[in-house]
Design a protein around this nucleic acid. Structure first.
Lengths: 339, 339
DNA sequence: CTGAAAGCGCTTACAG
DNA sequence: CTGAAAGCGCTTACAG
């Protein structure tokens, strides 16, 4: 029976070291009150037997799994995979592991988190959850009721009653707008977005405020955040009677779509039209022309979220909620021209 | 004491449904031999009490965690995050969760898997491991000894004694070479790669064989897989006395680096020089010109790996090892010109 | 500084 | 079809 390997337990170690299994526990958990001699003996025995602590057993008894769950729409988009990356790095440092799960199944466009998803995770006794997905108000209430340590990242919760870490879209777009105005642009169009989303309202508000402050007329056109949306909007802009010297994409991919379509119509970026993106995905760096954009503060978002989650885990009874709004940095590149 | 919520257990459900906790277990685990009436009563009780099965307890007793670990170099590269995405989707379908972990810590260039990493995972009783990282021969032997269900993906193990799923680099590059030759190219340079890596040897072999088969002279130049490597190689090629009409990048990012540098030197792609990439990252689709490349078969790699892992988990005593080599599809786009 | 006892919430193995 | 007992490998709470 090749797979029937004997499992080494604390008891085996205890026997070899000639102590009780409690002493082994104390040594392994780094508790202070063990004599140096005993400690050494135990450690040696562990080594000799190649003892491996069973975290599942420890988790059952102590109700601490040292695991956190992360739910994001998909691993395939750069922003999400970068967030996940920083979260995991940080969790690793704190000796937590992450259970990563994607919201979207390939066959369905379900964008909202379902309770069963949370339930599966709670069955596994995760110590906390980081959430980057859309919540119905009912879900939010249920989550609050359950009082599991939880932080929303990159998205507002509908009732604003959960800990939340988001980018400052408003000032991000306001800074981008200011950059264009400083470069002499007056007719600047905001392209894309999805009505009803808080992130979009904030973005639009940042743009509009800056335009109005400078006596300019804000114009928003089209919807969406994808490459294809950018293509479609470019078509509209070219065939409609818009007059503009610059277009601000709601995302980097909208910007890329805009630029490629403009070029297909013989319009060069930035010599004929200036274009900006939003997010700071790697394509903005490698694209030709390199695209001026605002960098999502991935590192800070993720670190803040993990920190807050750890705080919640350590203080389950604290009730006050936090919302952190992380500044966004403009990255000046080649897709904007000085008029 | 707000956080001292009573935990509902099988025993509570049993009491309410007026059965033993074993019967509750049977119902919850979908075992057949329970009368319909009892089953209904139990299910109702579960519902009423909002009972949640404790998977940690179940895992401790049954030694099955229904969790698999995935170790990849980083979540930040497209190939890896796509692999992770498909693996997770597939695991989800089979009711497994994934513990995702990155090999590289930000502060160290450690590319090799350490034993402690595996050990942490085994402490958590994961049912299996999918590995996309470099292994020393010692690590491979130790892993084989431990006999935990394990599959290598996207990389060969040094001793070839582990289950492995990789792309067919050889025929991928051979097909790419054939495409260029069919388009009239004779002086084709292979750019980049890292000596000593099996994936690189295979790639190079595919290219060389195809060149020789057509009476052409293979020339390999430069090393690496990054954008910057592509830039550096482009400089070499321009300033050296190479004569060539096409360059095959070892990766998509090498191709992008080559193209941008060529363009900075006034050489247009594809009118002056043809360039190909490898991997099928999204940038090849959005770049201008869109880049001809060979698509890593992400879906098949991941599905095959998960399938094989599930097989290993179900049959821990089967000893024979498998190596799957998944075909790679050429994607013809605009960066290759017909001479 | 050390240990004996109880228990976390399940599943296993057996009995009826 | 149903149940009583034991045990998975730890931690908790208490005693000395």
């Amino acid at each position: 029976m090749p797979s029937a390997k004997k499992i080494i337990t604390r008891e085996d170690v205890a026997k070899l070291a000639n102590v009780s299994h409690m002493t082994v526990t104390r040594v392994l958990n780094g508790e202070a009150n063990v004599s140096e001699k005993t400690r050494k003996r135990v450690l040696e025995a562990c080594d000799r037997l190649q003892f491996r602590k069973n975290l599942v057993a420890s988790s059952l008894r102590s109700r601490k799994s040292h695991a956190i769950a992360v739910i994001i729409p998909t691993f395939r988009h750069e922003l999400y995979s970068r967030l996940l990356s920083v979260i995991e790095e940080e969790a690793q440092k704190k000796e937590y592991c992450i259970i990563a799960s994607q919201l979207l199944r390939p066959d369905q466009a379900q964008a909202y988190l379902s309770w069963s998803r949370i339930s599966e995770l709670l069955c596994r006794n995760v110590d906390g959850i980081i959430l980057d997905c859309d919540l119905t108000p009912e879900m939010e209430e249920r989550l609050a009721m359950e009082s599991v340590p939880l932080v929303c990242i990159n998205r507002y919760s509908p009732l604003r009653q959960l800990d939340t870490v988001v980018s400052d879209y408003r000032s991000g777009f306001s800074n981008l707008t200011r950059l264009l105005i400083r470069n002499g642009h007056k007719n600047i169009i905001f392209a894309g977005g999805i009505a009803g989303r808080a992130e979009f309202s904030d973005s639009l508000a940042g743009y509009q405020e800056e335009m109005l402050r400078n006596g300019l007329t804000p114009v928003q056109h089209g919807s969406g955040y994808s490459f294809e949306d950018g293509i479609a909007i470019a078509d509209d802009l070219i065939h409609g009677r818009f007059s503009f010297s610059a277009v601000m994409g709601s995302s980097d991919y909208v910007a890329v779509g805009l630029i490629s379509r403009f070029q297909e119509h013989g319009l060069q970026v930035p010599s004929d039209i200036s274009v900006t993106g939003f997010a700071g995905d790697s394509i903005t760096q490698f694209y030709h022309p390199a695209i001026t954009t605002a960098q999502q503060p991935v590192q800070e978002l993720a670190l803040t979220a993990v920190q807050r989650l750890m705080y919640r885990i350590a203080h389950p009874d604290v009730k006050d909620k936090m919302t952190a709004c992380i500044p966004v940095m403009v990255l000046e590149r080649q897709s904007v021209r000085k008029l």
